[in-house]
Design a binder for these strands. Structure first.
Length: 764
DNA sequence: CAGTGAGCGAGCTTCCGCTTGACTT
């Protein structure tokens, strides 16, 4: 018999708490929720008043059995799940499932994991808050209704295996709408003028870099201005010195950690979370799924000690940050080092770097403001109203900047903060060089995983535990893809005034180059438009915020959960029925034009295997021809010209030793085909539309040569090959590893068979 | 590895939010 059993959500938390509580307490973990709506069907009795039907998922049966056993052996049971909506529901499910006797069950919560806080919590137990539980049930049921009623509509009206939901559909919408803004964006160019001026101070020359405050719309205007500059007398006008301060960013929460780890370390959202999980389990950082920026009292005083001993008293400033995230539940502390005095840890390189980031951010958050002096100098011209301005920045006191500066999403390479030379008003300046550079306006940026999380958080959509899964779901469904794009070359003109001469040169720059950005795919755009048309309210950016308000009213006992659900359902469900009944299948059909030779109508649509262009209308008795779109083409932007080009493949280039050499493009990109063998074209080198027979033969010869070297030995169906990871055995489409210490070239057929039989093949 | 785009129908797919392991290569 155990005296006390404490149940928490996380096993790592259980381990920590057990240390504080002495031998009368046993601490176990529920591993999150233990019960959920039935998986196979809707799991809700709608006519009975939105009564949920719960079941214990298969993977949770073992945990539940262990909890049952532990509970039956304990005198008093303390349920210490998180103090938020989900945590309260977990507590209630535990009581129900374990059939706990209320007289020997206590609900407790603690806000920080310290001996003191836990002992305090145990002194003041309470009962389960059923209003809060009902708010969670309403949330759960609403999400199930939306997901399980709309998804089947998509299976019927768009494509099988698609999905829709309160959160994922909005995430997709953000990406689709951003892409459309980019598609419709028309870049405009103007000329930005920058001068390097010389001042004479004593015997030496010093230089000052300044930008003209006016931009010029055309090359002619820019040139005329440079002509003025050639003749102008430049003098220092105004000198304005402004003191300023900068304050540190608050400690990390899940979303800001994901953003900074992406910006500073290049980690993906899921990578960051996996690393943070590891650090948490090893007791190196506090819990990594949190929406609260607050730090415990104990942590604050520890951090203060670290700041003072490392940097001195005047660098220290205690700050408590207010949590600003919409819908934050604040069940945990901010993400911080468990032991702030440890500025580094042992572990992999990635773990060390993430820890370092968390440590710096936490320490900096408790440091003094930086004191800055910003100087703006204007330079006047005697023959033009245009002024030049130069700004310089001097850090008078670095404060938190000594440790950490937050990064931004936009690369501000131009924003260098120089120190200005000593100038006085009225001083004469001489130009050294003045350039007018053509600059294009840029479209709004595509989302990265991390900036999408930021946006979702601003909208109050999704939770710290779901940001990473949302991103993988919308990619798995094929709605969006994370990709690099090479960008396109663009010509720009630069005018330069130097030593009285104006010269013009043209340069190329790369525009629209992208790395690891989220792009919508055709099916994502079709589903988005379909939802927009038929379920406008659900994918409204404010939908979550509105239902959250109602959940809050349920939590405070002002609204009955089934009343809320009934009101929602009576307006939602008819839209489902009506869409099923009246709407045609959404294929995203768009007419591109007519074929210039045959006169057939060319359309683009979503086919069974992906987006296709189609020439000819079967309803007019024409036999349609099809061609798949290329990976980088969108149904929304493909032109007639590009579409016609797609029909030109596959084509025959000519003959090699009496057999045809053809070129086409397939599932894995462009290829050359010869005697039933495929040869991939080199990426970014060969183009299937313009490749010559000579080049194709070169590719064939190269690959054949490589393949010959690939085969080490051959016995009937057994082949010993050289692969990417070294030699291996290939037999009937299965690959087998050669045991260490064996010479691949020296293997006999029997030895090979032996290896094959010892490694039974798996069905996949 | 590299094709496919007729139509029918059975049986399957799906949500969000809590939490960590199992499986090998």
């Amino acid at each position: 018999m155990i005296e006390n059993l404490v149940i928490v959500e996380s096993p790592a938390k259980a381990r920590t708490i057990e240390k504080f509580l002495g031998k009368d307490f046993k601490v176990v973990s529920s591993f999150g929720h233990i019960r959920d709506l039935t998986k196979k069907n809707l799991g809700i009795d709608i006519t009975g008043g939105f009564v949920p039907r719960y079941e214990i998922p298969k993977e949770k049966i073992k945990v539940v059995n262990e909890l049952r056993k532990a509970a039956s052996e304990a005198k008093t049971i303390w349920i210490a799940s998180d103090e938020d909506r989900e945590g309260e529901a977990i507590a209630w499910h535990l009581i129900e499932v374990l059939n706990l006797d209320p007289s020997q069950t206590r609900r407790i919560v603690f806000h920080e994991i310290t001996k003191n806080a836990i002992e305090e919590a145990i002194k003041s137990p309470r009962t389960v808050d059923m209003n809060l539980v009902n708010a969670q049930q309403a949330r759960r049921i609403l999400d199930r209704l939306v997901g399980f009623e709309i998804s089947p509509v998509l299976w019927k009206k768009v494509q099988p295996a698609l999905s829709a939901g309160r959160v994922q559909s909005v995430a997709v919408r953000l990406i689709v709408e951003r892409e459309r803004e980019i598609i419709n964006f028309k870049p405009e160019s103007s000329f930005k003028v920058t001068g390097i001026f010389r001042i004479i101070t004593g015997s030496s020359n010093e230089y000052i870099k300044a930008d003209a405050a006016t931009k010029f719309n055309s090359e002619e205007e820019a040139k005329r201005f440079l002509e003025l500059c050639r003749e102008a007398l430049f003098t220092v006008g105004n000198i304005a010195v402004k003191p300023g301060t900068r304050s540190p960013a608050p400690p990390f929460i899940t979303s800001t950690l994901q953003q900074e780890a992406y910006r500073k370390l290049g980690f993906s959202v899921s990578q960051t979370m996996a690393l943070a999980q590891k650090l948490y389990e090893e007791g190196k950082i506090t819990y990594m799924r949190t929406d609260s920026t607050s730090l415990s009292k104990l942590a604050l005083s520890k951090i203060r000690e670290v700041v003072i001993s490392e940097y001195g008293e005047k660098y220290s400033k205690i700050r408590q940050y207010k949590t600003t995230a919409k819908g934050a539940q604040e069940a945990h502390e901010a993400i911080r080092p468990a032991y702030p005095e440890k500025s580094s840890i042992t572990g992999t390189q990635a773990e060390k770097r993430l820890y370092d980031l968390i440590w710096k951010r936490t320490i900096a958050s408790q440091m003094a403001d930086a004191q800055i002096e910003r100087t703006t100098v204007t330079i006047d011209m005697n023959n033009s109203p245009v002024i030049f301005t130069a700004t310089g920045e001097v850090v008078l006191f670095d404060g938190f900047l000594k440790v950490y500066t937050e990064s931004s999403d936009h690369d501000n390479t131009e924003d260098e903060k120089a120190i200005l030379p000593p100038v006085k008003a009225g001083m004469e300046l001489y130009y050294n060089k003045i350039t007018a550079t053509e600059k294009y306006t840029s479209p709004p940026p595509r989302y990265t995983e991390a900036s999408l999380v930021k946006k979702l958080e601003e909208l109050g959509i999704g939770r710290p535990s779901t940001y990473a899964p949302i991103i993988s779901t919308i990619q798995q469904r094929g709605y969006v893809t994370r990709e690099d794009r090479p960008g396109e070359k663009r010509k720009i003109t630069i005018l330069e005034l130097s030593e009285g001469k104006i010269s013009s040169l043209s340069k190329t720059e790369i525009a629209g180059k992208e790395k690891s950005k989220l792009f919508p795919k055709d099916i994502g755009m079709i589903v988005n438009d379909f939802l927009q048309e038929n379920f406008t309210d659900i994918i409204d950016y404010n939908f979550t915020a509105e239902v959250e308000e109602q959940f809050d009213r349920i939590a405070s006992g002002k609204l009955a959960y089934n009343k809320m659900l009934k009101d929602f359902y009576t307006s939602f469900h008819p839209a489902v029925e009506e869409t099923l009944e009246k709407k045609n299948k959404a294929k995203g059909v768009r007419v591109l034009g007519t074929h210039p030779e045959t006169g057939e109508t060319i359309i683009v649509k979503m086919g069974r295997y992906g987006p296709v262009i189609q020439a000819g209308d079967p309803e007019k008795g024409e036999k349609p021809k099809f061609a798949s779109l290329q990976k980088d083409q969108l149904m929304e932007t493909i032109t007639l010209e590009e579409a016609l080009k797609l029909f030109s493949l596959p084509r025959t280039l000519g003959q090699l030793e009496g057999d045809d050499v053809t070129v086409g493009t397939g599932k894995f990109g462009p290829y050359v085909r010869y005697r039933n063998k495929y040869y991939s074209l080199k990426k970014n080198v060969d183009d299937p539309y313009i490749i010559t027979l000579e080049r194709a033969i070169e590719i064939i010869r190269e690959k054949d040569k490589a393949d010959q070297q690939k085969v080490i030995k051959e016995f009937n169906e057994i082949r010993i090959l050289n692969g990417r990871y070294g030699p291996y055995i290939s037999f009937k489409g299965q690959n087998y590893r050669i045991p260490k210490g064996k010479d691949p070239a020296g293997l006999s057929e029997e030895e090979c068979l032996d290896i094959i039989n010892k490694n039974p093949k798996k069905d996949k």
